[in-house]
Design a protein around this nucleic acid. Sequence first.
RNA 1: GCCCCUGUAGCUCAACGGAUAGAGCACCUGCCUUCUAAGCAGUAGGUUGUGGGUUCGAAUCCCGCCAGGGGCGCCA
Length: 591
Amino acid sequence: MFLTEQQTIETKIKTFCEANGILLAALEWKPLPFNGEWGISTSFFATAAAESRLGKNIVVAKRAQEIAEQIKGQLGAEGFSRIEAVRGYLNLYFDTHKYSRRVVDTVLEQQGRFGSGPATGQQVMIEFSHPNTHKAFHVGHLRGTILGDSICRILDFAGYEVVRANYPGDMGLHVIKWLWGYLKYHNGEEPSADITKWMGEVYAEASKRLEENPDLETEVRGVYARWDQRDPEIVTLWERTREWSLEGFRQMYTALDVRFDVYYFNSQEEKPGKEIVDELIRSGIASDDRAQGGAVIVKIDEFLGLDKEQFRTAVVLRSDGTALYATEDLALTLHKFHDYPDLAKSLYLVDVRQSLHFTQVFKILEIAGHAEAQKCGHISYELVTLPGNVVMSSREGTVVLLEDLLREATSRARAEAQKKNPALTETQLESVAKAVGLGALKYPILARENTKMVTFDWQTALDFNGQAAPYIQYAHVRCNSILKKAQGDPQTLNFHRSPYEYELNPAEVQLIDMLSRFPDEVQRAAAEYKPLIIASIAYDIAKAFAGFYDACPVVQAEPRIRAARLRIVAATKQTLANSLALLGITAPEVM
RNA sequence: GCCCCUGUAGCUCAACGGAUAGAGCACCUGCCUUCUAAGCAGUAGGUUGUGGGUUCGAAUCCCGCCAGGGGCGCCA
């Protein structure tokens, strides 16, 4: 924001040092740790350290301070409100009023685009969620879905062209098992209102019965054989029941406010996958051990001549010639580039257990001469477990179902809203319950490092206080209340730029500081695929606003202060809304 | 055996190699006749698992060790 001033100063420092025989190390400018005033700073530790290495008898910290003081003595404060030399740092302070005004004006000019980055012209595909049809959708799946959605929103806002891809597992042993269980115990039944839940129950029952009576496995294998021969009854049933699941997913994604641009299905990658494997065999990359009762494998380390185990050996086709996940992933990877030839990156958001799998798939394709593979990457995240480190499993029934969680969160939010604000109409209650319930659910997942495990417990998931989405949403609502109250006031209606000539309260300076950080945080979050960064800044803004709200009357303030503060409130509301949007959380007007 | 992740306040977690390591929860003390108390202010809480190294400067980077979790030929 003050780049010109910074460059002028930098030139002066260089000139001074040259004239005085100081061998200046490269200058790095950083924002001052904010303490009520904004500014930038640089330090002279590197310069002093270099002198020390040349044999001069100096104490680095002391010498750095000495240089800082000398330079300070040479500089006029033009463009800055003041300059200080302290502990080896040279601190340049901005004029607080000017800076505040620049920040608030920028937000209000850019509105919904405040914080967004310039178009990069790069297209990026993110594959996420990939639920299994014929199974339940539980809280374990929620993390990948919520995380993927937020990463897409962030990348889009940061300037990328994002393609959201989903890859449901619509065929495999689990589906065969389901079909068997349906035919045997539920033939002719239609799904209930909670489609996915019902699908999951049928699956869990099939698993349980098989466990109780392993002899039934032969029947399941029979169904698999019929599928393999494309028995019309099985194929039709598969198509029909698969559609039930997909419809269930659509409903769930709508409820979660998550959307996709393109769907791939593993049933479609089976054939092309086998073709790629044939190609790998022909080119000598894969070895076909099927004649000896083995599978088709790629000894990647051996192929690359590595001594140490790194990529290891990958199985790309079962010994009976049927496709594995790896078979299909080989095809899918290329399929994506066929559909979107301009992809700069093709990313897979999948839990950490599959890291090796993806490095193998990409490496094999690279070896086979597919350069696109180098644009592929795996973004991994840790699991959501239940207390006691229990992994959620549909088969074992150790799951918290999304439907149940959503219902519980919404009804709790509704009860809370009714208690806190009895004036809400039925329609408002409805939407507040949805916004708050869903937000409360998403926030704790997003506000955590991707690589850290989440232990699900109902209490945390439904906690509406403290560092949580409702706190941020509430700040947004309070902004709205103030703005509403001020309607009709001429000073407000024509929101003209306020000069900020009064002495700014520390709380409002603090708040403006948080707003000013938002754009950089968006870029960081995009570069690292970390919604956590947005979750943090959103909370920090809300917290700063709460302090402002408490310390700074707006509507009651004298006219010129009132006008300026109204603009600050409007800018805060906007920035909160922008940041919540990146998390896929609704910013309500009332609650 | 090889590889990956994690270890920070009682608990759950933050902290682009920079200045005095910060929040929330829980506990304790205050604050609603005011723009919604889903809030605010205050008290208390730390040898950043451990031992070295690099650096002017390390929770952060490198190496060793300890503890927990995960992955490693036909599950997805």
